[in-house]
């Protein structure tokens, strides 16, 4: 069965959608991504849709689902590279992807994710440092 590859980049997962999604493929992506988030304990998910020319309400719902499900597992989702025509169409359709972060490109998306989870990371490092101190 067709699958969209998911790349692991440090604490983040990166998905680049290069094909026109049909429903089964989109549902598979949702499943695979959530499984990956739980398996790798990823802190963030980047979905690059710069090559996607059509996002309808079904596809929009999948993106929203991925974001909500990841959030429960403590991972933030950023959708990057949406085409202007797609953005205009989604707004007209009445779909504003509440709860999903967006960024212009993968680089900016990565920055955003780092900022979003940065505070948490800092806290963790401090905790770890404390532990180290104790070990000494």
């Amino acid at each position: 069965m067709d699958r969209i590859p998911i790349l692991k980049m440090g604490p983040f997962l990166l998905v680049t959608i290069q094909v026109d999604l049909y429903d089964r493929l989109a549902l598979n992506l949702e499943n695979d991504l959530i499984t990956m988030v739980s398996k790798t304990e990823a802190r963030g998910v980047l979905i690059d849709i710069s090559a996607v020319s059509i996002v309808d309400s079904f596809m929009g719902r999948i993106l929203g689902n991925i974001a909500s499900m990841s959030r429960i597992m403590d991972a933030e989702t950023v959708v990057v590279g949406m085409q202007p025509a797609v953005a205009i169409t989604l707004v007209e359709l009445g779909l504003t992807l509440q709860g999903v972060y967006t960024a212009l490109d993968v680089e900016k998306g990565m920055e955003l994710l780092q900022k979003k989870i940065g505070l948490n990371l800092l806290n963790n490092e401090e905790e770890e440092a404390d532990e180290d101190d104790r070990n000494l």
Binding site: V78, V79, V80, G81, M82, P84, V86, A87, I88, L90, V91, T96, L97, T102, A103, L104, D105, K108, G109
Partner: peptide
């Protein structure tokens, strides 16, 4: 809204 969807 459209600007935000693009990530700006």
């Amino acid at each position: 809204s459209a600007t935000r969807l693009m990530g700006a």
